[in-house]
Amino acid sequence: MSATRKPLVEIHAVDQIFRAGFWLKPVQVLHHVQIQVPEKSVFGFLGANGAGKTTLIQLLVGLRAPTRGTVKVGGHLATTAKARRKIGYLPERPYFYDHLTGEDFLKYFGTLSGMTRNQLLDRIPTVLSTVGMTAAKNVELRRYSKGMLQRIGIAQAILHEPELLVLDEPMSGLDPIGRKEIRELILSLSQEGRTVFFSSHVIPDVEAICDEVALIDQGRILQSGPIGGLLSKGPIQTEIAFSGVTAANAKKIEELMRIQEMPDGIRAIVTSQVSANDALSSLIKKGARILWVSPIRPSLEDFFKSTKEGGSA
């Protein structure tokens, strides 16, 4: 967790057990989950389908209470009304009452949030404008596209100006343009000072917009923290491009891996800082002209893979 920001969400030692089957056999889906979400952060919750993301989100928004442990939002237990006032939520693959127009839909959820008529009249045009749905406000939801439904879903989630926005797979089922639009919307909501917690199984989506991340697998948190900090734990590689030395000669330098001949020279990878120094010295000794030396930042995907395999983590 970021040291400078206090946590808005505190998930402490949470276990979740469901009863399944005819004999109500206990099945543990979350194991001692511990996460803190700093306020005003964009927190990505990453895991494969069935890893326990939606279950944890349901605990976070107060739809169910954990079997063991506590989930607090803004210092209040998530199941209390005080905590729920701070939360805006968009579930995965939501179905909305499709006979309502966009505006009626927002009025309905605004009323449930305790907003007065005047507050609704004041706030709805702002929210519709934020999500880019002003033109469709009088159209029934059954005529909305998937992307428009996601936008109006986000509109209902931010209508009552919650501190925490919880989005369960908000980009699921969208085309690339729709995904980009929702990413940009999440970023703009974050810039307004909101804390955004969103789940995804698509790593590039999380990598693109999150500053904090938690990885979950089979109900266990593998890693949690600032995304930069997590990636710095991953393997550090350096790409070296050079010319003036043949590929055959370059292969004699043992630090150089994955040597590739390119039209403008040769590129190779070295796997540590020491190897980079040694490889550069050897290349210079052989009369090579160094074109560039570039560190390769590990992707979240690499990190997730290596953490799951019990590698670098």
């Binding site: 107060g62 739809l63 005080k82 729920r84 939360i87 579930p91 939501p94 179905y95």
Partner: peptide
């Protein structure tokens, strides 16, 4: 899941 969005409200 329409009940979910409603019951997340206070």
């Amino acid at each position: 899941r329409t009940i979910h969005i409603a019951l997340v409200r206070p």
